[in-house]
């Protein structure tokens, strides 16, 4: 039985994804991702800092997601909600687990290291913010250009040059999110707002290009049999291939 969803897709089809990079001049790297109607913008800014004594030579990478009241009438103005905090933590975990940016690459000289802030803002919320945020973060990081820093030996003066070098991103962990409903346990990929709202449970699978599983995220929800889980991982593998292809194409179009 072929199941058709409210927007005409079948269970295993994702919405149209559009990525745009480098639009924001004030940030070192930026990306805008549109998945269906969900719109996410990401900006990467860098500051110089001294590394921690217990991890000398390791830079810092901090990811933060913001869900402002602009994106959906459900969100009220005020301090970051639980949802935005938990997704921020999810993104930070992916960065650490996958090693997409090696922290020792961010060191400049001696104690001086880069501290990168990846700020993600959701502009329109139509479900599945996690996938779009991960894509935006990857697109922004792959196209981040940091200025070359030289420290003069005599007086320790820090010089920021105009020349830019691209940040080395070792891998690209891509997330695929599934939801399943109460009744028959139909699993659907890339949920829209209504589907996410009515779901009995959510499942996010993060994979890397070499095929390894970076993170499996199933926050509570209705129990899922093993067979369905394996099926989801297999589907995630094939869908992630499309995302890697998309990211590569976008990066190639960026003029160095």
């Amino acid at each position: 039985m072929v199941l058709e969803r409210s927007d005409g897709r079948d269970c295993w089809k994702t919405r149209r994804t559009i990525i745009n990079v480098g639009s924001i001049g004030t940030a070192y790297g930026s990306a805008l991702v549109r998945r269906g109607k969900t719109t996410i913008v990401c900006g990467v800014k860098g500051e110089l800092a001294n590394s921690r004594p217990e991890n000398p030579g390791d830079g810092f990478l901090v990811v933060n997601l913001d869900l402002p009241p602009l994106c959906c009438p459900l969100f009220k103005p005020g301090p970051p909600s639980e949802q935005s905090q938990s997704i921020s933590q999810f993104l930070n975990d992916i960065v650490t687990s996958s090693g997409c940016v090696v922290l020792s690459d961010l060191s400049i000289e001696g104690q001086l290291v880069w501290c990168l802030f990846v700020d993600i803002i959701c502009l329109e919320y139509d479900g599945n913010v996690i996938d779009a945020a991960v894509l935006a973060m990857l697109a922004a990081l792959t196209n981040t250009k940091l200025p070359k820093i030289t420290v003069s030996n005599d007086n320790g003066e820090i010089k920021v040059s105009e020349a830019l070098e691209i940040l080395a991103v070792k891998s690209q962990p891509v997330t695929t999110t599934f939801v399943y409903q109460q009744d028959g346990g139909h699993v659907m990929v890339d949920p829209s707002f209504e589907e996410e709202y009515d779901a009995a449970g959510i499942l996010s699978i993060t994979l890397q290009e070499d095929g390894s599983l970076v993170k499996l995220y199933k926050p509570g929800g209705l129990q899922l049999p093993d067979s369905v889980l394996e099926q989801c991982i297999a589907k995630a593998r094939s869908l992630s291939k499309d995302m890697w292809h998309l990211l590569k194409t976008v990066s190639e179009t960026v003029e160095t």
Binding site: T26, A27, G43, K45, E47, P68, L70, P77, F117
Partner: peptide
Amino acid sequence: GSKSRGLHHKVLINCQYSMATFSTGER
């Protein structure tokens, strides 16, 4: 929110101005 903030004779306009952290030269 609080219904008492509503005005009986005109609409209440609620504005929020926000700058993205990456919008300016310095974060």
